[in-house]
Design a protein around this nucleic acid. Structure first.
Length: 468
RNA sequence: GCUCCGUUCGUCUAUCGGUUAGGACGUCAGGUUUUCAACCUGAAAAGAGGGGUUCGAUUCCCCUACGGAGUACCA
């Protein structure tokens, strides 16, 4: 083990929103850095100018901020470091670890086509590898790594174990393109080294790349980072996560009303485990996180479990924090903001609705009785029905209660709340409301509602009626 | 094609040679409930297949099948 301070990094390409799989990769890096008192850095891999957009970069930044994955220092732009990448390529050239290759793209493509047709290896071996400089033509060239052709390259992966690659099967990859721009392979290694990255935690689609990248480290005599290639997330059908599986961008999850804490918990649990622990806080995740707990096979995304964990986090959420997140959710979902009255009302009602809500919209639905404004606005037809039902319930209340003018009003608010939540007819609600009066229902009971609505007097009377 | 990785209940997973293979989500049943939900109790539910190694394999090795990733002057 090295004495170096732990530095991890998340390096997305700004070609779209922050992918849910990318978010998990970022989370693992964040968790590891935080667990070891290290740094978690962010690097935007924007060398593909055609596909990179500033909008995507800000979307990624927004997504990470929402998830609470704070990175240390400024985000690094890979594109802006192109000169440094070229510098390293030339250094390798000078040191004899790389060479100029004048083969044209057409030439190489033709070779591969022929090789494929002949059923032989498509591995391109440049004739310029050991060519005499005096034979160099006056043409554009690329700089290729002079990779070893004998022996093997071994990656000691923290998740995948020891993975061996035969060097004879690895080609002399291009470091610097003919237009002088660096390739991804070069850029990652140079950036990771310069940023002092000690632990590379990324998707296992990069496992093959690790072998070739390590050759650059070796050539430059740079210390190799610790690798941890984590399995990708798949959709419910086991196939690679794609648009038809629903939400891919983390912001969509925010818009669906999942709390960030629940999201972190679920994402961490997806592909990583700590014994039988399912529900945990960030502090626990940081304390427990280690490479040994990461599974080797791809995990499927399951909304049911996300809902469950999400609900548990909302249930233990702190009032002010929940309120704040709900307001942020409403803004992202494009819903109208809370009025001051609704805000204080929701705050009062929080304790009796948060335990049953899976998501924020779910919570708002359950709090309908306090969120709705008085007098209650209902359509004519519905109003008639509501009137009938509330009157029938009213008739069952104790005489004193019936005489309190606003009881009926609150009752209607409760009914509306139920109706809204269940999208059902008022008539069907008489039963559950009676159950609520008896204090047995799981939905906010009338006791809760009255309490929230500030009807302590009613409460007292109901209690009297119940005990006496 | 070639290279690399993977495969325990429907899903996420525990097990680090000896367990009635455990937990969670989901599902189903019963209870409570004049809907739903919630809650309580319970149930069904797994080692891909075949060879080895071993006194003993889910666990170690090999083969097959299936799945995934890579194989670019993309990242």
């Amino acid at each position: 083990m090295s004495e170096r301070k732990v530095v991890t990094r998340f390096a997305p390409s700004p070609t779209g929103y922050l992918h849910i799989g990318g978010a998990r990769t970022a989370l693992f890096n964040w968790l590891y850095a935080r667990a070891h008192g290290g740094e978690f850095q962010l690097r935007i891999e924007d060398t593909d100018r055609a596909r990179s957009t500033p909008e995507a970069t800000s979307a990624i930044l927004r997504g990470m901020r929402w998830l609470g994955l704070d990175h240390d220092g400024e985000a690094v732009s890979q594109f802006e470091r192109a000169d440094r990448h070229a510098e390293v390529a030339n250094e390798m050239l000078a040191a004899g670890h790389a060479y100029k290759c004048f083969a044209s793209q057409e030439e190489i493509a033709a070779f591969r086509e022929a090789a494929r047709a002949a059923g032989t290896s498509t591995l391109y071996q440049s004739p310029w590898r050991d060519a005499d400089p005096v034979t160099f033509p006056d043409e554009p060239y690329v700089i290729r790594l002079k990779a070893p052709r004998e022996g093997q390259t071994v990656i000691n992966d923290q998740v995948q174990g020891k993975v061996t690659f035969k060097n004879a099967l690895l080609d002399d990859m291009i470091l610097l393109r003919s237009d002088g721009t660096p390739t991804y392979m070069l850029a990652v290694v140079v950036d990771d080294h310069d940023m002092g990255v000690t632990h590379v935690i990324r998707g296992d689609d990069h496992l093959n790349n690790a072998a070739r990248q390590s050759q650059i480290y070796v050539a430059m005599e740079w210390p190799l980072p610790v690798y941890a290639h984590i399995p990708l997330i798949h959709g419910q059908d086991g196939k690679k996560l794609s648009k038809r599986h629903g939400a891919l961008g983390v912001e969509e999850y925010q818009a669906m009303g999942y709390p960030a804490a629940g999201m972190r918990n679920y994402l961490a649990r997806l592909g990583w485990s700590h014994g039988d622990d399912e529900f945990f806080t960030d502090a626990q995740a940081i304390e427990w996180f280690d490479f040994g707990g990461i599974g080797k096979s791809p995990a499927r995304f399951d909304f049911k479990k996300l809902d469950n964990l999400s609900g548990q986090h909302i249930a233990v959420g702190e009032n002010a924090a929940l309120l704040q997140e709900i307001e942020a959710y409403l803004a992202v979902a494009g819903e109208p903001p809370l009025s001051e009255a609704q805000k204080s009302g929701l705050s009062d009602a929080m304790y009796c609705v948060q335990e049953r809500a899976k998501t924020y919209p779910d919570l708002i639905d359950k709090a309908h009785f306090i969120m709705t404004s008085r007098p209650i606005q209902v359509e004519e037809k519905a109003a008639k029905h509501l009137d009938t039902v509330s009157r029938s319930i009213l008739n069952e209340l104790t005489p004193q209660l019936q005489n309190v003018s606003w009881v009926r009003d609150d009752l209607e608010a409760c009914l509306m709340g139920f109706a809204q939540e269940k999208e059902t007819k008022f008539g069907k609600l008489a039963g559950p409301l009676r159950a609520a009066l008896a204090g047995r229902a799981a939905t906010p009971s009338v006791f809760d509602m009255m309490l929230v609505l500030g009807r302590e007097e009613t409460m007292a009377r109901i209690n009297d009626a119940a005990t006496g």
